[in-house]
């Protein structure tokens, strides 16, 4: 049973590596931010699954932190790109 979780994480890891292609190729900064968001979502998913795989339920807090906070960085990049960051 635990192996299923690890297989899922392995697939997610492979997807993360695939996303790097968009990070490399993305012609503009917004495309790269899309890659950032994707990696963020996949990371949260991996963390949730891994906490079950390790049998340590207290680990889920890390995933919550990511889910809550990662979009702050996205917003900053968006604010810069939108030309709204004039202080």
């Amino acid at each position: 049973m635990t192996d299923i979780w690890f297989v899922a994480v392995a697939v997610l890891g492979a997807l993360i590596v695939l996303t790097m292609v968009r990070l490399l190729a993305g012609p503009t900064a917004p495309d790269r931010v899309v890659a950032l968001d994707t990696v963020n979502t996949l990371t949260v998913a991996s963390m949730i699954v891994l906490s079950v795989a390790y049998g340590q339920t207290v680990f889920v807090d890390v995933a919550i932190v990511y889910a809550l906070l990662s979009f702050v960085g996205t917003l900053y990049v968006a604010k810069y790109l939108g030309g709204e960051m004039s202080a």
Binding site: P30, F71, V77, A78, K79, L81, G82, G83, E84
Partner: peptide
């Protein structure tokens, strides 16, 4: 976040 990025990209 998706909305913010779309808006920024458009702007």
């Amino acid at each position: 976040g998706a909305h913010a990025i779309a808006r920024a990209a458009h702007r």
